[in-house]
Simulated scan of single mutants.
Amino acid sequence: METLVKIISWVFPDFHFQWLVDESKKNIPQELDFVQEGKNAEKISKAFRHYDWLKVPTIRWDLTTKRVLTMEYIEGGQVNDLKYIKENKINPYEVTEKLGTLYSEMIFLNGFVHSDPHPGNILVKKSDKGGVNVILLDHGLYATLTNELRVSYAKLWLSILNRDRKGMRMYSDKLGIQGDLYGLFACMVAGRSWDSILQGLEGRAKDLNGERRTMQTALPKFLPQISGILENVNRQMLLILKTNDLIRGIEHTLGTHTRNGAFRIMCYYCIRSIYSQKLYYCHTKIQRLKVSVAEKWLLLKLKVYYFFVYLGNWCNILVSLGKRPALM
């Protein structure tokens, strides 16, 4: 593989793929070590035990070796199996909200991120209480994020959501992307066009299908720049970008990709990530109290803001219904 990449780089000097070789060398041995996978499963199960809807199969250590992994069998349907979801009366919006909550907490707070969330590794099942359980499989590949990266990434996301170009440039730089490429990097992180970011992601949620086609058409023009970004970005970000794309793919399949709730969840965990770092550097009770109050006040404002967004959406729906011509 490394030889092939060197040949491609020689033929196409504008394209950089050494990062792919480096990541493969690092990740493949991890994914083939089943003892480590079992330990990862137990670690994530313990870290998120406060979510009773998250199910991680129990490892049978007496039947597990580095080459054989034995675990509990849990029934469920793949997260992208629309037929299964419909037949079992599972709410797809509940599925994506729980996935958003789980992965936001992993990335922004916990720092231990399941990095292979393709549909085959995430099952869903109707719970006895009527909600939905999320079953997380395949724990071979995890990203362990530093506190500095978590907070920089959180600040980058808040800058994107706030249309703060100065902040986007600053925190892209902290993640390894320098100069004017910060805009393209922000698009890669958000999975949205630059125009959408500047106009506000929430306000353009309904235009995603057309926007996706436009981005796919424009993609070939930016391949050398994208290749350069992937070569230079903080290595921990590579798995985050991969995880983002897989989660977005699941949302698109379920038809929930236009929801604004994703931004609400992300904002919540970004704020908590930033203020958890501030608390860490507090040396007195007064300092900790001030930071805690500031965090709670900001989270309260966030709730109020999204309450009015929700209220406004319903008002728009009612107005549009009122404008429809009478059927009789």
Rank of each mutant, 00 (worst) to 15 (best):
S193R: 04
S172F: 07
T253E: 14
R165K: 13
D180T: 11
S196I: 02
N260L: 14
L198A: 05
L219D: 00
F222P: 00
L184Y: 01
G261Y: 07
S172Y: 06
E211K: 09
L254E: 01
G255H: 06
G255L: 07
F263A: 09
Y275I: 02
R272C: 12
K206E: 13
Y268A: 00
K242N: 10
I250T: 10
R165W: 01
G228V: 01
H257Y: 13
D180A: 09
Y268W: 08
R248Q: 11
R169I: 06
G228F: 02
K166T: 15
I197N: 10
D245I: 04
G167L: 09
K166Y: 13
S193I: 11
R204E: 13
S196T: 14
Q236L: 03
S196P: 02
L219R: 13
E251Y: 13
S172C: 07
V233C: 09
C270N: 12
A186Q: 00
L239S: 14
G200V: 10
C270P: 01
L208D: 13
S193K: 04
G210W: 03
I274D: 03
V189E: 04
L181G: 01
G210L: 04
A186D: 01
K166F: 12
G183Q: 14
K166D: 14
T243A: 04
S196W: 11
G228T: 06
T243E: 06
L238S: 09
L208Y: 14
L181P: 00
D180I: 05
D173C: 03
L208I: 15
S193Q: 05
C270E: 07
A262G: 08
E231R: 11
G176C: 09
I197H: 10
R272W: 00
D207T: 03
Y275G: 02
D195L: 13
F185W: 08
I271Q: 07
M266I: 11
R235V: 09
D207F: 11
I240F: 10
Q199H: 14
S196K: 05
K206Q: 12
G228M: 06
Y269K: 08
T258K: 14
L223R: 09
R264K: 15
M237Y: 02
A205H: 05
Y269S: 04
M266G: 05
S193E: 10
L239H: 08
F263V: 12
P220V: 05
Q236N: 11
G249L: 03
R204P: 01
M168V: 05
F222M: 03
P224K: 06
K174P: 01
R212Q: 12
L208G: 03
S196Q: 12
P224D: 05
G183M: 10
F263N: 07
E251H: 12
G255I: 07
L223H: 00
D207E: 15
T217D: 10
P224T: 01
A262R: 15
D195N: 14
Q216W: 02
G255P: 05
S227T: 00
R169H: 08
Y269L: 07
R169W: 03
C267Y: 15
T214Y: 15
L239W: 07
G228D: 06
R169N: 09
K206T: 11
R248S: 07
F185A: 01
Y182Q: 03
L238A: 05
P220F: 09
I274A: 04
K166C: 01
F263C: 00
D195P: 00
Q216C: 06
N260F: 14
A190L: 10
G249Q: 03
T253K: 10
R204D: 08
R235T: 12
G176W: 05
Q178S: 13
Q225F: 05
